[in-house]
Design a protein around this nucleic acid. Sequence first.
DNA 1: CGCAGCGTTGATTAGTTTCAAAAGGAGTGG
DNA 2: CCACTCCTTTTGAAACTAATCAACGCTGCG
Lengths: 251, 251
Amino acid sequence: MTIHLSQSESQAQKPCNHDYQANCGNCRLNSICLPLALESDDVQQLDDIIQRSKPLQKNQHLYREGDEFQSVFAVRSGTLKAYKTTDDGREQVTGFYFPGEILGMDGISNNTHASSAKALETAAICEIPFTSLEKLSALMPNLQRHFFQLMSHEITEDQQLITLLSKNSADERVAALMLSISTRNARRKLSPTQFRLPMSRVDIGNYLGLTVETVSRVFSRMQKLELLRVDNKEIEILDPQGLRKMANLGN
Amino acid sequence: MTIHLSQSESQAQKPCNHDYQANCGNCRLNSICLPLALESDDVQQLDDIIQRSKPLQKNQHLYREGDEFQSVFAVRSGTLKAYKTTDDGREQVTGFYFPGEILGMDGISNNTHASSAKALETAAICEIPFTSLEKLSALMPNLQRHFFQLMSHEITEDQQLITLLSKNSADERVAALMLSISTRNARRKLSPTQFRLPMSRVDIGNYLGLTVETVSRVFSRMQKLELLRVDNKEIEILDPQGLRKMANLGN
DNA sequence: CGCAGCGTTGATTAGTTTCAAAAGGAGTGG
DNA sequence: CCACTCCTTTTGAAACTAATCAACGCTGCG
């Protein structure tokens, strides 16, 4: 986690580690995060309600299924996974969250978190108390709109995952995930072709509805086809076009 | 569609068919629909922005993937399915919508509908123009809150479907769908044990990530186990407890 | 150094899809 | 009202994908 991490995540981590009292105005991610929709005056008001606490360590929970819902969260650095535990004790990963992305919105419906969220590596988080966000939304149409859009986006993402699980083969699912991570990296101005997977093979399997063994075999197959180079968690996409073809998604 | 329909859907349809200008105040569904969260003064204001047009005929579209997003919709009577068409032309059903339920929220994120919605039988719809809803939400905290909750609920529903597709067998998936329909019927004060499926086997398969043949086989198996009686689209749940056990979901 | 956790690979098995065919229902027109 | 067609549903047999079971390699840590 030390040497490798510094290769692909250093840009995201450094500014945050020595700047706990960062604010939305100077945050490197403000062009892709909540402030995206706001004028600078309004950003200041948003900033006032946001709470920043010390970073989460690897494997620490941000919240657990069943916890009372009070806030949504923005990832400042690091990666989290959201997951539900099924009645027979198995785990369903419902999403991975990278810097600039918002999680916790599934808790609004019942005032109770519907899933758990756990840090896959050290992660800095911005906490946004929901009642404050509601009040601010009522005053700032752009913020209200943007938050509706964020939730709607979560719905369309989930629907894409539904389609993936329902219609696509193991190869297609893994390829699609690699492409999704690549795209999200690009959004953060990181390399779309070289990155370190923050999650384990088990997590990938639990997200894509596959077993670890199958995930591993798919990676081997992809290497044999020279679509990508896999060195444990380090990924290099060699043939983006070929990978898109394997994913069979048209994007 | 004529004789059978009158058995299970007559209560839902009659009041609507001869009352196009129904309003939220007198709607039979107001205790489970959008007005749920509102005082009667506020219901009147909501009512003023809602548009009711003539019912959709079977197979008519309410909106199509790619259409400009302008409104969300409440089902007054009948049933709709929402679906996406994959790049290779196959269909992924993302949800079925019964009276009192809201659809179209996946269009907010891009100002474009991310899925299509089609009537599975004659359906009366309330259209809620989104910009009006936004304005009203900013004035009525309860409405804003409720709409956030509705979207959040859609997210948790999608996550349940994700888990179902990822972790559960064909038997479990079909059982879970039957129980879901049963529960939603109960919410509308209809029989939880006897109902008519508004969707085809193909639709069920496309929703649950199974082929028609598999769906049909599961129904046969369920009949053999005397969990339910199937007569084409007419379903009678004979053993709710056994069905819950087969669904393996703890609910 | 030895152990624990994670990842890879191989052989076998099981569940679902695919292919094929036929039965059942609904609608149409004579 | 019946014959015809089209579409949906059901059932059977074969093929295939991914899961399961099992073993081993690699890495990091006490």
